[in-house]
Computed example of a mutant assay.
Amino acid sequence: MLRAFVTCARTGSVTRTAIELGYSAASISDQIRQLEVHTRRTLFQRTPGGMSLTEAGRRMLPLAQDILLRMDFLSRCEEKH
């Protein structure tokens, strides 16, 4: 969910996020919706032109990026052992 959120924030598009991450657009939309339910915040404004972060989404973005960086670091550490 976090990777979908961060990627969609960067691309501004569910379709481009789906292509980049190798999921269907419906799956990406579901993941973002689940994250919004979990956080009880609307993270994106949805428009015909794409997705843009809400204020809550802008506040959450650096936290999500940090979590993903740490998760990626842990994955690399585990691969070495």
Rank of each mutant, 00 (worst) to 15 (best):
E36F: 01
L21A: 04
L63E: 07
L53Y: 03
V14L: 09
P48H: 12
A4W: 01
L35V: 14
T7P: 04
R16Q: 10
V6W: 00
H38W: 07
E55R: 15
S29W: 11
A64I: 03
G49M: 13
I67P: 00
T42H: 07
L21H: 12
G57A: 09
S75C: 11
Q34D: 10
F73N: 03
R58Y: 01
C8K: 04
A18P: 05
M51K: 10
A56P: 02
E78D: 08
L53R: 00
T39S: 01
L53A: 01
L69D: 15
L74R: 11
R58A: 09
A4L: 05
E36K: 00
T47D: 13
M51A: 11
G57Q: 07
T7Y: 14
A9M: 07
V6T: 13
T39H: 03
R16G: 00
M51I: 10
G57V: 07
L21D: 04
L21Y: 10
Y23K: 12
F5A: 05
G12A: 08
L35A: 13
Q45P: 03
Q34T: 13
A25P: 03
P62Q: 07
R3Y: 01
C77Y: 09
H38G: 08
T17E: 09
D30W: 13
R40M: 14
R41H: 03
H81N: 14
G50L: 02
L61H: 04
A56S: 07
A25F: 01
D66H: 06
T47P: 05
Q31R: 10
S29A: 02
T47C: 08
F73T: 15
T42N: 07
D72G: 12
S27F: 15
I19P: 03
H38R: 13
M60N: 00
L69I: 04
H38A: 14
R70G: 14
L21M: 09
L74I: 15
T47Y: 06
V37G: 10
T42Y: 08
Q65L: 13
S29H: 11
Q65E: 13
M1A: 15
Q31W: 09
T15E: 14
L43C: 11
A64F: 00
L61R: 00
E78F: 10
L35R: 07
A25G: 12
L53G: 01
Q45S: 14
I28E: 07
T15N: 13
A56R: 02
C77A: 15
S13H: 08
M1V: 10
L53D: 00
A9V: 08
I19Q: 14
R70N: 11
L69G: 14
A56Y: 09
R33A: 06
I32R: 00
R16N: 13
G49S: 15
F44R: 11
A26M: 13
T15S: 15
